[in-house]
Amino acid sequence: MESVFQLRNIRYGDILNIQHMDIPKDKITCIVGESGSGKTTLIKMLNCLISPTEGEILFQEKNISEMDPVDLRRRVVMLGQNPVIFPVTVRDNLSIALRFSEKEPLEEQEMKKYLAMVHLDKNLDQPVENMSGGEKQRLALARVFILNPEVLLLDEPSSALDEETEILIIEETVRYVKHYGKTLIMVTHSKLIAETYGENIIKISKGQFVREGEM
């Protein structure tokens, strides 16, 4: 099976100690484990938001330390638990993503299509200040979809959502990555989500990892 990431002899302070880990390409990998086990630290290293103290990380067989970090982050996009939402309109938040990735502006109908994918029924010219935390999280996810990355790194992407909306959003994300042939690497607290959608499950415990197997 082809790997999108390969980790070799990785250390990050006293938080992570990973001797060997391969993450498969074009699959859904769920990362699970108790709070403080190093899950978020792990995925932040995958697009150079932080760098390991020791060891190397290969992205498609190229050492990420030798890559342009901006180029890497356009190809490997991360959505954190508390994504940055700019205090402007819905339209502007989506347009900012396009400018970052040096992509052409989208027509209004295309923008609305991405909002529909995350079940966000908002006017494009609506200010975001009064949107709920869950709505902002969905807007941030739509922004990730618009960027069209090769790899999506999601850190608890549904943490601000109620259970019903959580399932809808995860299903839409899975549908997106399968339709467009993407790789999804997702930190989740939910055993149900991991077992339902994960094709590969990695458990992190006290900075070490155990591959639980392929679903």
Rank of each mutant, 00 (worst) to 15 (best):
R75L: 11
R73G: 11
L152E: 07
R211V: 12
V76P: 09
G13Y: 01
V77H: 09
E199F: 00
F100T: 08
E34W: 00
E104C: 03
H179G: 01
M131E: 09
G55N: 10
V77E: 00
Q60M: 12
V144M: 13
E214P: 01
G33M: 01
S190G: 06
S65R: 14
I15D: 01
R211K: 13
E102F: 12
V174C: 08
R8F: 05
K103P: 05
L79I: 15
L184Q: 06
P127F: 12
I96P: 00
I43A: 06
V90G: 04
G134K: 12
I64E: 10
A97G: 15
S101N: 15
D22C: 00
V151H: 09
I96Q: 06
V187T: 04
D71K: 14
D162P: 06
C48S: 14
K203W: 06
I169C: 05
T40H: 02
P24G: 02
G36F: 00
E150V: 12
E171Q: 12
K62M: 13
L147H: 06
K25H: 02
R138E: 09
L7W: 05
T165H: 03
L184W: 10
N9P: 00
D92V: 09
G198E: 01
Q60L: 14
Q126W: 06
V151L: 08
T53V: 06
L42T: 10
G213T: 09
K122S: 10
F86Q: 11
E156M: 08
R175C: 03
G13M: 02
S65E: 14
E110I: 04
R75D: 14
V210R: 07
N130G: 15
P149C: 07
L124A: 11
L115R: 06
G134A: 11
E164I: 09
H119C: 11
L120E: 07
A97C: 15
I204W: 02
L58F: 14
G198L: 03
I31S: 02
L58K: 10
E171I: 01
E135F: 12
D162I: 10
A194R: 04
L124P: 11
K62R: 15
G134Q: 10
V84N: 05
M45F: 06
K122Y: 04
T29R: 05
G80W: 05
R143H: 10
R75V: 07
S190V: 05
I31C: 04
I169H: 02
M67D: 10
R8Q: 13
L184K: 05
E2A: 07
K178I: 03
I85L: 14
M111K: 13
L154S: 08
L42I: 13
Y197S: 08
G207N: 03
I10M: 02
I202S: 02
E156P: 10
G133A: 08
E199Q: 14
T173W: 05
D26H: 10
A116E: 15
V4A: 02
E104V: 09
Y12V: 00
S3P: 02
E172N: 14
Q6E: 12
E163K: 08
N63A: 15
I64N: 11
V32Y: 02
G80Y: 08
G36D: 04
I169F: 05
M1L: 06
G134N: 10
